[in-house]
Nucleic acid binder design. Structure first.
Length: 274
DNA sequence: AACGATCCCTGTTGGC
DNA sequence: TGCCAACAGGGATCGT
């Protein structure tokens, strides 16, 4: 599902296809996808005729930078996919937004479960959106900064890693993989992590995200996530614990356990993670 | 303020 | 084999 590595992979793959193109058409066939746009009519009017000048990403949010200081924002939710294709080809099921470009192609936003959303905002509006913490990959916090954010927190570290206001981009899969790589029990209260734990956590986060991006993200068998070119993300073969309940831990051989923490499946190795 | 529960949505899965 | 309830999860929102 789309977490930071999946969104970053998506960004890289569509970047060259869309930059320097001009938007000619906008077709929205499911209004729900615009639910975060204050005035849904703005979506179409702000995109039409606009030139795409770049792309960026903050956490799991993809930004398509437009002329006129506007930002086309796409959040893939849990089943969203962004792709480009010739506009005469058949769009996949659950394609809710199609944005035509001046070379005959179009950008498609497809999302079966509709947890994703898209909107076009001004720079001012962007600043007012829910505050996100620093990006886990491009702007990771220092150990001191993360330590300060975790101090006295009683929520489990697993839950705090998923909190986008602490660090942005980590979802359920990469949170579990990071805690495993760092050897930290996901149930531990955030405030109980030592300096050394936090060092391990940040190093593990870096390694796990790097491997995830390198592999083109994670495509689970039951998930709709595909890269913009239709390929699967290959990180699934590198998952150490996620989805591996009752399988032997790759480090100690003891069985991997699944607990529900804050309503989210959490896979971990009780022997390796303390 | 911090925390945890609930809800949104639909394809897939698993139990009967 | 076929049906259907349960499940999955990011993040907004709400109650405590």
């Amino acid at each position: 599902m789309p977490e930071l590595p999946e969104v970053e992979t998506t960004r890289r793959l569509i970047h060259d296809q869309i930059v320097d193109r001009t938007i000619t058409d906008v077709l929205v066939t499911r209004d729900r996808m615009l639910r975060r746009q204050e005035r849904p009519a703005d979506f179409r009017s702000r995109l039409s005729g606009r030139r795409i000048i770049g792309t960026s990403r903050l956490g799991k949010r993809l930004h398509i930078l437009l002329g006129g200081d506007l930002v086309w924002l796409v959040h893939l939710g849990m089943s969203g996919r962004l792709s480009t294709a010739d506009r005469t080809s058949k769009a996949p099921p659950h394609t809710h937004v199609r944005v035509g470009l001046d070379d005959g192609s179009e950008i498609r936003f497809t999302d079966p479960r509709t947890f994703g959303y898209t909107m076009v905002v001004t720079q001012d509006e962007l600043d007012e959106l829910t505050t996100m913490g620093p990006d886990a990959w491009t702007d990771p916090p220092t150990a001191d900064e993360l330590g300060a954010r975790l101090e006295r927190r009683t929520a489990p570290i697993k839950a705090l890693l998923l909190d986008q206001t602490i660090v942005a981009g980590v979802g359920n899969i990469y949170a579990d993989e990071t805690l495993f790589a760092a050897g930290i029990d996901p149930r531990r209260a955030g405030g109980t992590l030592t300096e050394s734990d936090i060092d391990s956590l940040l190093a593990a986060l870096r390694r796990v995200l790097e491997a995830g991006i390198e592999a083109g993200g994670t495509t689970l068998s039951d998930m709709a996530y595909l890269l913009p070119d239709g390929r699967s993300g290959e990180f699934v073969t590198e998952l150490a614990v996620y989805g591996r309940e009752e399988e032997p831990c790759p480090r100690c051989g003891d069985l991997i356990r699944r607990d529900v923490i804050r309503g989210r499946s959490t896979f971990w190795s009780p022997t390796c993670q303390r």
